[in-house]
Write a protein that binds this DNA or RNA. Structure first.
Lengths: 330, 330
DNA sequence: CCCACCCTTGCACGTTTGTGCACGCGGCTT
DNA sequence: AAGCCGCGTGCACAAACGTGCAAGGGTGGG
C-alpha cells in the first residue's frame, strides 16, 4: 500500500497529491462530519467501495490519527506502578489472559507500531533490532514523514544458512519507508564463528561508520530474546546457535538477550562467552541512546525482561497486560 | 449522554470510573488493536451492542480523539490564500455546492464543534454568542476537561415574547458541561426598547461584573447575522426586530451583526442607531479577546462576513468551502 | 417495606462497511 | 507496434455495525 505511492511517483506528483487530497477530503467528511461512505461517494463522484479504500488509505498512511486520552485522574494503575518501581514509562496493552502467544504478540506489536510515531522525529538516528516482535511491528507502522532521519540496524542477521539480508532488510526497509528515512544495513552474521574475526571486522572503516551511527542513536527499538523459554524467539529457531552455544549460555547464567547481546538476571554481561561473537551493540553503547523502547509480549519473557530492566536498558516499555501484572507480582 | 456521568455520580465514583475505564479499554481494543466489536464484547463479557455504545461514548466524551493532519506540503490552497489575504486562520469545511443551507449549516457546525477543543483551555474566559449556528454547534461539542474556565454570554436573548433564557441558557449550559466550566448568563433582552434603559442597566453592579468578564475574554465564539439575506438568521425570525428597525438598519447601511451589534460593509458601526439598544459587546471590547472564532456557513452571509473581516473581528474562521471560495473571488 | 421510575442490557432488525473478483485503462517492455 | 503487467474501479456478497424495543435490576421516595 505504502509502496504504491512511491511507485506512482512516476506518474507525476499531481496524481499522488490527487489521491492524498481526495483521501483527506473523504476523511474530513467521514470523521468530522459523520457522513456515511455512501454519501461521500456521491460527493466525490466515485463508488462507495473506493471511498472505503480511500479511508483505509487515510488511516494507514497517518493522514488520520486516532489517539486515546485517559483522563488524567485515572491512568492505568499498572502503568503508574511500573513507573514508580522501575522508573520507566510503560504502555500496557490490554490482552485477555487466555490469548495464545501468537495473538498476544500480534496485538502488542500492532499497538506498538501505532504508538511508535510519538517517538520518531526528524533529524534522529533510530536503532532497530530484529526478531519476531520487530517483524510483526514492521508490518503495521503508521507512516510519519520526517527529514534527515536514519534507521540503523543494531545487529547482524546472517547465519549458517542464509545471509539474513532479505529478512532483515525487508524489516528495515519497512521502517525506512514509514518514516521516509535512510536505512543503514549491517550485513554481518548474527554471531561470528570466531571472536577474532569479529574484532578484526570491527576495525574495518565501513564497520566503524556503522558503529559510530549506533553510538549516536537517539532512539533504540528492540524486543527481547528469551533463550530458555518454552517458545523460543526467532534467534533460537533460525539456526543461529548450536547445542554447544546453549550449554555455554546456560552455564554462564544468561536469561535473555537484547539485539543478540546476552545478560544475566542481574543485568550483568561480563564473562558471557557468546557475547564475544555477537554483533549487537555493547550495553554501554546502547544506554547512550536517550530513548530505548522495548516491546515485549508473553509471560515466557518475564525473566528476560527482568534482566533487561536490571541492566537499565529500557526507558519505555510496551508490554501486554498479563506480563505487566506478573512483573509487579513478587 | 454527558449528563449521565454527572447524575451517576450519586452511585459513587467507582461506577463512573468503571464505565470510563471500560470505554477506555474498549477503545484500545478497537482503535489500537483493530478487534471487531464482537471480539471486544467477548473480552469484556458483555454484548456487542454494549460495546458499540461504549465506543460511541468514548468518542462523544473525548476519550478518543480523531484528528486529520494534512501533509505539510499540501495544506488547502483556499486556507493559504485566506491567510495571505486577510491574515486570519481559516478552517475550510468541505461541503458540496448543491447542499441545502440547512445541511451546510449543520455540517459546518459539526466540524466547528469538533475543532473547538483546540481553542479551549483551562483558566480561560470564553465568550459565547447565540444564534442558529451556535445552537447547532452546541449540540455536538466534544467534552474536554478544564479547570477554572468560565463561559460568558455575550449578548442578551430576551424579546417581546420570551425571556430567551431557556433557549440561551440551554445553549450555554452545553458549552459549560462540555468543558466543565462555570456559566455566566446575561439575562437581558437582545435589544432594549429604550437606549436610556440600557445605559442605566449598564451601570448596575451585577451588569458591570459581567461586562468586566467580557472585557477580559481570552476567546470569543460567534456566528454572523445577516439581516438582509434571503434566509434570515435566528435574530430576525424570533421577533426581536420590527419593521421599523429593519428600515433603520437599511438606512444606516448595516450589512450584518456579531452578537447583535451591527456594522457596515467597511466594518464601521458609528451612527447605527440600533446599536444603542443592543446588548452585545462593543467591537473595541470584543477585539480585546486574543482569539476570536467565527463560524459561518452559506453564501448568503458573504457580505456580512466581509464586513466582519473589515472590522477586524475575526482571528479564526470556520467556514464552508463554497463561501470561502466566494470570499476570494472579487 | 413496597412501588415507581430510570438506567442499562441484550436481542433483532436494517443499515453500513470491508473485500474477493473481474474488468479496463494506462505505461513499459520486448 | 503489440503485448504484458500492474493498478485502480465497481459489483456483489458477507461481515460488521447502530439502534428501537422490551425486559431486568437497582435506587430513591413514599
Amino acid at each position: 500500500m505504502i509502496e504504491r505511492d512511491t511507485s506512482n511517483a512516476s506518474e507525476g506528483a499531481d496524481t499522488v497529491s490527487g489521491r492524498t487530497r481526495e483521501a483527506l477530503r473523504a476523511a474530513h467528511l467521514y470523521y468530522m462530519q459523520d457522513l456515511t461512505m455512501d454519501a461521500i461517494a456521491h460527493e466525490l463522484h466515485t463508488s462507495r467501495s473506493s471511498v472505503s479504500r480511500l479511508l483505509s488509505h487515510a488511516r494507514a498512511s497517518g493522514l488520520v490519527e486516532i489517539s486515546i486520552h485517559s483522563p488524567l485522574d485515572l491512568p492505568s494503575r499498572i502503568e503508574q506502578e511500573i513507573l514508580a518501581r522501575f522508573e520507566i514509562v510503560a504502555h500496557v496493552v490490554p490482552v485477555p489472559d487466555h490469548a495464545t502467544d501468537v495473538d498476544r504478540l500480534d496485538r502488542v506489536a500492532l499497538s506498538a507500531a501505532r504508538i511508535l510515531g510519538r517517538f520518531v522525529d526528524s533529524n534522529q538516528t533510530i536503532g532497530v533490532a530484529w526478531g519476531s516482535t520487530m517483524s510483526a511491528m514492521s508490518r503495521h507502522l503508521v507512516p510519519k514523514s520526517t527529514h534527515n532521519t536514519e534507521i540503523v540496524q543494531l545487529n547482524g542477521a546472517g547465519n549458517g544458512r542464509t545471509t539474513g539480508i532479505v529478512y532483515a532488510s525487508e524489516l528495515l526497509r519497512r521502517f525506512g519507508d514509514a518514516f521516509g528515512a535512510r536505512v543503514q544495513q549491517f550485513p554481518v552474521p548474527a554471531f561470528f564463528d570466531d571472536p577474532a574475526t569479529r574484532r578484526a571486522f570491527w576495525k574495518e572503516r565501513s564497520t566503524q561508520r556503522l558503529l559510530d551511527l549506533q553510538a549516536g542513536m537517539d532512539v533504540a527499538i528492540f524486543g527481547i530474546g528469551s533463550p530458555f523459554a518454552e517458545v523460543p524467539s526467532h534467534v533460537y529457531q533460525g539456526g543461529y546457535l548450536d547445542r554447544g552455544d546453549y550449554e555455554a549460555l546456560s552455564r554462564d547464567g544468561a536469561v535473555g538477550d537484547v539485539a543478540t547481546v546476552f545478560y544475566r538476571a542481574d543485568g550483568s554481561t561480563d564473562g558471557i562467552a557468546l557475547n564475544e561473537r555477537a554483533t549487537g551493540p555493547d550495553f554501554t553503547v546502547l544506554r547512550r541512546a536517550p530513548r530505548r523502547i522495548c516491546v515485549v509480549s508473553g509471560r515466557a519473557k518475564l525473566a528476560s525482561l527482568g534482566g533487561a530492566l536490571a541492566a537499565g536498558l529500557i526507558t519505555d516499555l510496551i508490554v501486554d497486560e498479563g506480563t505487566a501484572r506478573a512483573l509487579l507480582e513478587p
